[in-house]
Design a protein around this nucleic acid. Structure first.
Ligand SMILES: [Mn+2]
Ligand SMILES: [Mn+2]
Ligand SMILES: [Zn+2]
Ligand SMILES: [Zn+2]
Lengths: 135, 135
DNA sequence: TATTAGTTTGTAATCATTACAAATTGATAG
DNA sequence: CTATCAATTTGTAATGATTACAAACTAATA
């Protein structure tokens, strides 16, 4: 990505300081952070940051299609700026969320042929490799 | 299913009146009801029913593997007693949740080979056929 | 019948998220 | 530069789903 500000502009989002920082954090963080995580991480650089701004900004990102909400966790929503098609695995032991590649071709029956699909999520749950070996 | 009481017993759940009614409702209801829906639907037959009982019972069902939580909605969790592998489509317009068949063979890369997968969910979002035709 | 464990219930607490209005910032025109 | 207006940010209060907890009730057992 050349420039986050330009990228936001391209997507119809006015690039305020907070929005740029939040998007940068999402981009550089593959951990699918929660609002709490984002807020805590940025509160150092932006001492006046409000949690409401984080919520608002994420909502804008989602509306404009440059981020997505991951409801893999029943407690908090997680966020992802990596919009390429991929699935998520949540380890029930260490709570880490892993990305994995998936290709849907042929996996789907034709029941949804007349449905307009705007988003697809694949959530797997279980025990990750690390936790399995460690126990 | 021969008998819900026996089925619960088989799965290590003592078949109380409330548990039987809640499971029957889940079984006969393909709408992926919320706790609120279940509570309202059964409150007629069981006037003393407590919402806490609905929560507790569903937790037991999930622990014992005879129901699953569907976090396709960001607000409320939905529940499903149909444990055969299938995906869920949520229409953003009418909020209906549809089932659809899916077969994962070959859709997955080998990244998760050493992971223990205990559950998999597939959530699609968009506009359903009915809403598309209606507009 | 008495005892005990398991179940249900109602209420209070928790906590992620949203609503809302005031404060701040940024852009634009005179 | 200054005034004006819109967009953005902020803090606080409300909302509402879920959980914690303890008392009431039920079922089983001796
Ligand atoms: Mn991801
Ligand atoms: Mn279903
Ligand atoms: Zn793990
Ligand atoms: Zn619809």
């Amino acid at each position: 990505m050349v420039n986050v500000g330009d990228f936001l502009k391209t997507n119809g989002i006015k690039p305020s300081y907070q929005r740029i920082k939040i998007y940068e954090f999402l981009m550089n963080n593959k951990e699918h952070p929660t609002v709490e995580t984002i807020y805590n991480a940025l509160n150092g650089q932006i001492p006046t940051l409000s949690k409401t701004t984080v919520y608002n900004t994420l909502k804008i990102f989602i509306d404009k299609g440059i981020a997505m909400a991951i409801t893999i966790d029943e407690i908090e929503v997680r966020f992802d700026a990596h919009m390429d098609m991929h699935g998520h695995f949540k380890c029930e032991q260490c709570n880490t969320i892993y990305d994995f590649n998936v290709n849907f071709e042929g996996a789907l029956s034709d029941e949804l042929n007349d449905f307009e699909i705007t988003e697809q999520q694949m959530f797997f749950y279980g025990i990750c490799k690390k936790c399995k070996n460690h126990s």
